[in-house]
Design a protein around this nucleic acid. Sequence first.
DNA 1: GCTATGTATGTTATACTATAACAAGTCAAG
DNA 2: CTTGACTTGTTATAGTATAACATACATAGC
Lengths: 164, 164
Amino acid sequence: MQDAPNSRAFARHDHAHCAGDMMARAEALSRDKGLRLTPVRRRTLEILLEAHRALGAYDVLDRLSAEGYGNQPPVAYRALEFLVEQGLAHRIRRLNAFTACMHPGEAHAPAFLICRLCDAVAEAPAAAVRAALDKAASDLGFVIERSNIEALGLCPACRTGAAA
Amino acid sequence: MQDAPNSRAFARHDHAHCAGDMMARAEALSRDKGLRLTPVRRRTLEILLEAHRALGAYDVLDRLSAEGYGNQPPVAYRALEFLVEQGLAHRIRRLNAFTACMHPGEAHAPAFLICRLCDAVAEAPAAAVRAALDKAASDLGFVIERSNIEALGLCPACRTGAAA
DNA sequence: GCTATGTATGTTATACTATAACAAGTCAAG
DNA sequence: CTTGACTTGTTATAGTATAACATACATAGC
């Protein structure tokens, strides 16, 4: 096990700071859009931010129920669905998992880079990817509404060190 | 329900011919690579080609068991896994489903366009998309081994007609 | 304040998706 | 004709997700 196996991007950073920053942005976004960032939803987002990696719905549920929230799947799924719809979290289909969005508020169709050794998930800037995808789709007359772009491979740390 | 709701690409074509062609290519590929395209595997591929749309593992299983093959999930999952590994089929994670590959043998990291109304799945050429994704990844020091690129939206037919 | 309305949460139950583990059969090489 | 690798079949279970209903909470209007 490495020291930074599940970093957001594949680089060190001030974890507490980025989580606090994201929460602040989520609050602001909710206020602006008139959304209800209720305790379960807020706590769910915090859990994702604290974990700092992709969590399954049942992982989230365990944490929520340990803190006195409901202990049935819909509790977690609903909170996660809300966060995803509001762009505060993303669903990583390859992992059947969810992760906090690191760029809330900015319109983006991110690409996720998933390390198959340490399970780190990075949200890569994907404007160019999305543009190419839009082009390929429009060539077929297809209109894209949402997209999932996920890649599996090796993060820098695992490529150089951990694999040895 | 439209007449061509689940077309491979969003265009009409000679269905029987394309399926036969795909099977021939699968046979050739297996012979060349020394793979064992056994009855279950061959039939699974045929089922995907005949359905001409993405099928869940249990849909495939139903058809297989109706024809005398095993009726337990691993039968379908193993055949599908084989086909995916050999590039003869693809897994559509967004739908928890599988679809026959329309370009077997050609190295490709396809993008899938999924119509949310008719569930048609098209395999779009995605060389440019993949190139952009590789670039985004390498900027972060990440090496991509496999990728899923899936988009949800409206196919030409549903956009113009069915939605009305 | 009080009630009506919409939204959110909690709970029960169940459906859907997927894999581990082992037994039995098949095939080709030696 | 036996070994060894692979394939298939089966049992059992794990993991993921949602439908449906009841309760509680918030806000707006009276």
